[in-house]
């Protein structure tokens, strides 16, 4: 889609509106004590936890596949992805289905909070003081009132290197 050409004004307007409504909007969810944020444009839908079919020979954080209305969607446990302690799923556990480069992936999170606006001005690049491998997945820190939301880089979260590998590199 070429946005530069200016022939079809009507069409472009619609596009802009769509862009506008999604701009600066983040879906926040909770993992342990912290709130995290994902850009809303990647989010397809949020569903409750459901039966996950295990897959052999996959990293631990890849919990398996679910049946999303006839589509087979792999799911990742974000806790395990971050190297956090495993937590039993409960009725608040959600699967956030995201679309990453035309590929559907489900993210298992403790609970989903809300959709909020975080203007670009309120987002700061993550500090590099502490050499934490988890920063690898961050795209920024969003200031919302008194709280801070950890904004995630979906690409890295889903397709980035495994946390163990990163830690290994960091330790060496």
């Amino acid at each position: 889609m070429q946005k530069s050409s200016s022939i079809d004004n009507d069409l472009l307007d619609v596009e802009y509106v769509e862009e506008d409504t999604q701009k600066d909007k983040f879906l926040t969810f909770r993992l342990g004590e912290e709130e995290y944020g994902l850009e809303i444009r990647n989010v397809i839908e949020i569903i409750g936890i459901q039966r996950v079919t295990d897959l052999p020979d996959t990293p631990k954080y890849v919990r398996g596949v679910i049946n999303l209305r006839g589509k087979v969607v792999p799911v990742i446990d974000v806790r395990l992805r971050f190297g956090m302690a495993e937590k039993e799923y409960n009725e608040r556990t959600c699967i956030v289905v995201v679309n990453l480069n035309e590929m559907l992936v489900g993210l298992i999170v403790d609970s989903v909070s809300e959709v909020i606006d975080i203007p670009a001005g309120d987002i700061e690049t993550p500090p590099t003081m502490k050499k934490s491998a988890k920063n690898h997945f961050l795209s920024g820190l969003g200031k919302v009132g008194d709280t801070v939301k950890i904004l995630l880089d979906l690409d890295q979260l889903v397709q980035g290197e495994d946390i163990e590998q990163i830690l290994e590199v960091a330790n060496v």
């Binding site: 897959l55 020979d57 890849v62 087979v72 397709q159």
Partner: peptide
């Protein structure tokens, strides 16, 4: 299986 999973040995 999703392209995310890739090729598995026994599946």
């Amino acid at each position: 299986l999703s392209s995310y999973i890739g090729k598995l040995e026994c599946v």
